[in-house]
Design a protein around this nucleic acid. Sequence first.
DNA 1: CGCGGTATTGAATACTTTCAACAATAGTGG
DNA 2: CCACTATTGTTGAAAGTATTCAATACCGCG
Lengths: 232, 232
Amino acid sequence: MREAWSGAADCMRCALRNTVLFAGLTEEDFARIHDPIDQFALHPGTTLYHAQDSGEFMFTIRSGALKLVQYLSDGTQRIVRIVRSTDVLGLEALLQEPYHHDAVALQPTEVCRFPAKLVGELSRENPGLYRELMSRWQQALSEADAWLTELSTGAARQRVARLLLRLVRDRESSACQLFSREDMGAMLGITTETTSRTIAEFKRQSLLVETRPNLFLLDIPNLRRIAEGEVR
Amino acid sequence: MREAWSGAADCMRCALRNTVLFAGLTEEDFARIHDPIDQFALHPGTTLYHAQDSGEFMFTIRSGALKLVQYLSDGTQRIVRIVRSTDVLGLEALLQEPYHHDAVALQPTEVCRFPAKLVGELSRENPGLYRELMSRWQQALSEADAWLTELSTGAARQRVARLLLRLVRDRESSACQLFSREDMGAMLGITTETTSRTIAEFKRQSLLVETRPNLFLLDIPNLRRIAEGEVR
DNA sequence: CGCGGTATTGAATACTTTCAACAATAGTGG
DNA sequence: CCACTATTGTTGAAAGTATTCAATACCGCG
């Protein structure tokens, strides 16, 4: 059993309704999609879907985070994206394609699931949804490009610094939680050990201060300098 | 002057018409888009557009190849994608966003240019075009993911081998042209020198045989073994 | 033929990985 | 609630790779 079913989704009261995929729908359209929506709670480590699974459903993330993982033929894994609250998952299902990644929860995560086919139908009549879908695709693409340029280029110290900065972007405080060293390594294309060493060094230099278990405050200005490669 | 204008495009006779973006359009729709289409020839090294330029136009590639380049704040460049014949360029313009990359010709290249706005309008009435656009977005995304897992992961030897194999995929022969060492390095996230050393070594091992200036035959099976990391 | 740019090579250095050991931590069952 | 165990994180040392910077070779073009 891979997830806890939490009943039909309560979309009308969903705090996210206006920020997520279906923001532009009329009440009428919305009624049509509401019924088939189910809501799930995922424990960390739970797989929402596997690469190659037939892509019947799309998902929105209500809370938490998932990693999208691809595997090389030699078995090494690479995390190609992180999806978070308000993000949409499984766009490829709109094209009747199987999923392209494993999607695995990194934290306690709540998702809403709905049939891709339905979204496809609605989008054909609803210009707002149509545009929103394109925008989501473009967002994913920009994100992928940023991972290439920022997280897969330069020395390990720089990559780790850029990942940390990315984790606190668009946030009020500079506090953030870290992922496991293994996951961070898989995001950056470096080994678990190198990641651990780098994080440990950042801690010693007070670029990272642990205020509570796995809650870190960042020294943003100095991490920026490292990210740019200005310091050793 | 950045490009040679070759006159209004002769779309009706374009060999690509049925394989590219507008394959599904009716004659009527097509008439509407034909007029604003211009065709350009680009010399190698020519920039088609710059990142941040206002994205008024989209492009299809008739022949040749372009690189999409992003820059880090420290000035290092990373090539995030290669677009080739039948590919579409500038999807972000559909969302009224500025371009996200520099687009630079790698070879003599012919492109067709058309207003993004027009495509947006047509796609709202034309389900075929609508679907085609989604499919193009997904294609770009898959490509980006593949660059992360295949071309930005593992040792330099493996990356170079995977890039070479990628260059001859879906081709009748195992012959291909190589890009400059600098460009290959920017695709793989390694230095020009490391790229050069690796290519030179492959040549010495006859994994690459130069039959004509810059035309190479690949030893696919052995390059595959290197790509998988099975050999030193 | 010579010039300018690209490719190749060398040598020293810096960095990352590997493999192994040990420490810290969280989860489990008594 | 505590002790135990399994997992995750940290560290060390050696080996393997990649980068840097500099020199030289090669190529295409005028």
